[in-house]
Amino acid sequence: MILYLPILLLILLSALGAVWLAKPVHAALCMALSLALTAVLYLALGAHFIGLVQFMVYVGAVAVLIVFALLMTRRGEESSEISARPRSWALGLACAFPAAAMLVTAAIQGAALPKSPPSEPQVSLSDLGRLLFTDYAPAVLVVALVLTAVLIGAALFAREPQKDTLR
């Protein structure tokens, strides 16, 4: 328990850095740190597969995120720093509130955690794979679709505006 507290603290700190830092690249690197530390937490808890997948998928994905962050902010050099405006504050709160409410209600309504540690479940890799491709296949497909849409949208935003002043 004592071991996990520093990790949790570091995760929170780097997550705050991801939100507060002005330069998008710094924020993205903080996010990578936070995600990597989450992977360390998983590994420390004994969930090796999920920890390694967390590291591979998210830390690798942050590199791509940075590319898009740069592509989308490099147009004017001065706009590469994000400033918080009242309108974006309101929007952020409006987005964050329902999510927080959902989490809190789920936490309140959920069953209490067992006092004694449960017996270690025996989950093999093939069990995980089977579940992903049968019961959870729709969810995986939906996530894949959302990601593709986001990528296409980002590419559209990042494209140079089609002005023919130069031609």
């Binding site: 690249v25 690197l29 990578a32 992977a39 090796h48 597969f49 390694l52 997948v53 590291f55 591979m56 830390v59 690798g60 942050v62 590199a63 940075i66 890799l125």
Partner: peptide
Amino acid sequence: LGLLFFFAVGAMTELSIFMAGW
């Protein structure tokens, strides 16, 4: 999970090359 470990730590390389460049 040796193979997964190999690719997982490999994900760090891209990020550090980017850090160097940026």
